[in-house]
Design a protein around this nucleic acid. Sequence first.
DNA 1: CTGTTAGCGCGTTCAT
DNA 2: ATGAACGCGCTAACAG
Lengths: 352, 352
Amino acid sequence: MKRLEEEITRQVTALDVAKQAGVSRSAVSRTFTPGASVSDATRKKVLKAADELGYRVNQLARSLINKRSDLVGIVAANMDNPFRAQQVEHMARALVEHGFRPILLPAEGEENPARVIGMLLEYNVSGVIVTSDTPPQGICQECVSLGVPMVLINKGEIDANVDRVLLDNEASGRMAASHLYERSCRNLAVIGSDKPSFSLQVRIRAFRQACRELGFAEPAYFSAPKQDYQAGFLAAQAMIKDMPQVDGLFCVTDYMALGSLDYLRLHSDKKVPDDLKVIGCDDIAQASWAGYNLTTIRQDTKCLAQQVVAALEARFNHPNAPAHLRMVEVNMIERATTKETKDESDQDAKAV
Amino acid sequence: MKRLEEEITRQVTALDVAKQAGVSRSAVSRTFTPGASVSDATRKKVLKAADELGYRVNQLARSLINKRSDLVGIVAANMDNPFRAQQVEHMARALVEHGFRPILLPAEGEENPARVIGMLLEYNVSGVIVTSDTPPQGICQECVSLGVPMVLINKGEIDANVDRVLLDNEASGRMAASHLYERSCRNLAVIGSDKPSFSLQVRIRAFRQACRELGFAEPAYFSAPKQDYQAGFLAAQAMIKDMPQVDGLFCVTDYMALGSLDYLRLHSDKKVPDDLKVIGCDDIAQASWAGYNLTTIRQDTKCLAQQVVAALEARFNHPNAPAHLRMVEVNMIERATTKETKDESDQDAKAV
DNA sequence: CTGTTAGCGCGTTCAT
DNA sequence: ATGAACGCGCTAACAG
């Protein structure tokens, strides 16, 4: 434990440990290599010496040899979206637990992917995980063509050989529709985005399809430029204006649902859930806040993260296996915004 | 641009480029080293060959020599808190812009810091940034004693030689107090946490101090176990019960303020801002949502990130300089929750 | 300005 | 099981 001035100037190397332990440098190396073959006696000696000197394996040097840096790039954008933030956190946790080091790269729009690509490739990342509303095509193409394992989260097919992990967006849309049906809603609307990401498109399509199968009229569609709180707010405004008779609303993300709920409460006569029932999708933390208490379809990001890491490891073991697609289950969380009205026929209509 | 099967099997090395360009390996190296001395002629040749072969510098090998990996660890926790998520995103962005690679390490409680330390040290990180409500002491001590540059965000002093960046928590507390004073509030309360983090403690102390100077009575203090939405909700409940006459409230974080606002709206007769004015701190995205519209003290996380990177670079240049403390300004954002009531004396008291 | 040489810290044959 | 030698891809110091 007496190491004060050396560390500052020179790193403790395997050779130092070897000398201290009275063995060869290879012995030290082997001691710290999982699939080794060292006698217990020397292992002890090495570990002792290593501890005394405060030795740590230099992973950078190690990577140089076995070509596995165990660095994994997380390319993410829109981290203001709580769902995304949660995804990133769980992803980082899962990676660390499995012995990887997540290196976080904010996807800086479509303008300059070269920088990000450089960061990834120059550091010999073992893999790349992409989660962003608008996946940076350039980065994906380059990585794939260079054979860097890549996993896309909630994205459409980009190239033949890319693994993907999807939340069950189809089921999400269907569950939303049938739940509103059970709650006796008959005039439905969907709130989405002008430029919906892949998963949003699927949710919307599935919702529409389910509506048809249930015998609904085609649900009305409202949207705004982005896909955040403000967008939900604006879309709800448009909806109230164009479709006053609406009694069931599916917001394709909770983030937008919160905006919609606030618009309805502050600027409309519609009471939720009495006059209008609302269901969201994702189950972000805010959805369970007392102020919203939003019924929603939960997307388990923890499970998602596990699946992503699993996909990555599978790809390491079988680099040439065909692209695999993993699906993560969803389930409905019923809260106040779709609560059954005591008497569905004519509740004391407390319009202002 | 014709590189298809080689890449998969073997990395393109500087030697390959040298051969192709008809120069020495060093020439290649120099071309890609900022402080170089290469003739324009050879530089051209090298760049051309490099482009043709798809060569990229191997930063891992480079780090092995100049001992600067440019990897920077971000140790973060509580990313469910939007303020923290925003911090992390801006931090990652700033780091990338300055040529660093952020490696994100979720601080996993106090239980097992060894794993995180290992990740940091074995990868020869150039620096470590810590932002967490409860800073993992073990990690900090170890890094400092090993001479790894470290920057603490919004933390108290841990060790003599650690740089820190603080938002101006003192000013935050003072501004909150004087704003409530200007708005004619006289019965003040503070909502904090049972175990407040460093910056929260400072905000509370400064608020109290300002109250004394303004001639207020000592503000009442309410708190709950954690420091999130739920905590704000519970603390507000306690406040309404114990102190019905409260007319001015300072929530030490927006995150908690949102919980308080929801409690007040849903479970109390107090109307904000008519009966009770509320001010938060941080200016998280949700604070500006229509449903909250919270007056708050803005903490500029973008500027914070810049300062942190600056601190890191300063430390690289002068490893033995005394610890430096950087302060980031704050400013008040006035929204609806402290809006002046038209007639302050006796508004139509619309108690239910 | 250029090429040659010597390591950076480590994993892995190949003999013993 | 263990030690000696070699190479991973690169930069820095040295000669020319």
